[in-house]
Design a protein around this nucleic acid. Sequence first.
DNA 1: AGCGGGTGGAATGTTAACATCCGAACATCG
DNA 2: CGATGTTCGGATGTTAACATTCCACCCGCT
Lengths: 223, 223
Amino acid sequence: MGDFGTVSPARRRGLADEVADRVREAVFDGTYPPGSPLREVELAAALQVSRGPVREALRLLEHEGLVHCEWHRGTTVTTLSPEDVAELDSLRGALEDLAVRRVVDLASDEDLAAVRRAADRMERATDEHTLVRLDIAFHDAVFAAARHRRLAEAWEGVRCQVHLFLLTRIGRSSEGYLARIPAEHRELVAALEARDTGLALDLFAAHRRHAVDVVVTGTAGPA
Amino acid sequence: MGDFGTVSPARRRGLADEVADRVREAVFDGTYPPGSPLREVELAAALQVSRGPVREALRLLEHEGLVHCEWHRGTTVTTLSPEDVAELDSLRGALEDLAVRRVVDLASDEDLAAVRRAADRMERATDEHTLVRLDIAFHDAVFAAARHRRLAEAWEGVRCQVHLFLLTRIGRSSEGYLARIPAEHRELVAALEARDTGLALDLFAAHRRHAVDVVVTGTAGPA
DNA sequence: AGCGGGTGGAATGTTAACATCCGAACATCG
DNA sequence: CGATGTTCGGATGTTAACATTCCACCCGCT
């Protein structure tokens, strides 16, 4: 079952990455809602590390778009305006189109299997927060299957913001979310496995459209 | 002549940004060729600052893809393999396609004028290095005209690598470069100003193609 | 009351010293 | 003679103290 043949990278990470992970989780857990200030000394004290790694982590999170830093004014959790959501969606579309094309053209069967597993995992989700997490994980798998390092890095630059956006989505309308989303992703996987570029592109575009519609119109759209 | 009406942001930058600029320039000047190690203490001593800002600057440059850091092993200037160039080109294509579409659809006349000025500036270039610099500046102007903050940030993630790539290009074949490139950019501007989406997309694609062809085939292509 | 300037506090930016880690060269043992 | 263990040097990772900057509050003036 495990992926033998590809041993774990076993690379030692610095404290900064660890701190970044913790803060990221805290933001997604709702501990730090959008707009909250993230003071370096507080985080340093809470995580029992010095301010150096904390600073580094905050800069990393800024590059991920999760927080916003201003000179001598501190960092706050990003709040996404409707314009931000539009920007995010268009950029994500450009990246995902390329990813989908590459997956269809030259993804290995193991990569596709990993994508399918990520989709399957969504079926067993019980609450919306974990479903959002698994949703992001699914798209991570898609970008990983594209086998394009720089593309995956570019996705990292919007990944957390999409997560944030999906979080506001479940705040607006969670009706049928748990049932609808897994089915939608099943279709995406099917199109990918069928190696149907046009269909996959359309389905992914529709998938994104559904997400923004909920936030923009405030409803789940036409049933 | 100057752009009055839009006052300079006048925001104070930290030392890290200053250091990053210096190192970037040094890399593009050839002071640090690809593969060179960038030691924190050396840079700190040379720039008369402490290691803190230098570390921060190096992390920034890593996000720009200009250098590569490894844990407890130091940072080195990026060396682009042929696969890297291919990755770079495809990602740049995805970003530039979106940018071109947006410029055609909703760029102001002032934005287009700025793009044209950037193209005009290339005519007066005398040596290849400054031409490369102006080439990058031209594409900066295009992304700026797209009025899409996140897209511009994504471009920043490939910008320096494209610069690096263009530098290797002039190393391979500089024949007719000084005369050809400005003309090519003039066509790009014309297509943009004509608001012809299809033509602009094609010309930008061809423009990218020319660049990679030089490096991949080792010649300037069919005369 | 409204406004301008000064002041205090708190947070970030910066620095220098300490701890940790990796790699290469040398010595050692089979 | 080859492989393994060790040691040494240099670099990065981390820490705590110092300097700078901003914001909010308050005071005095008009």
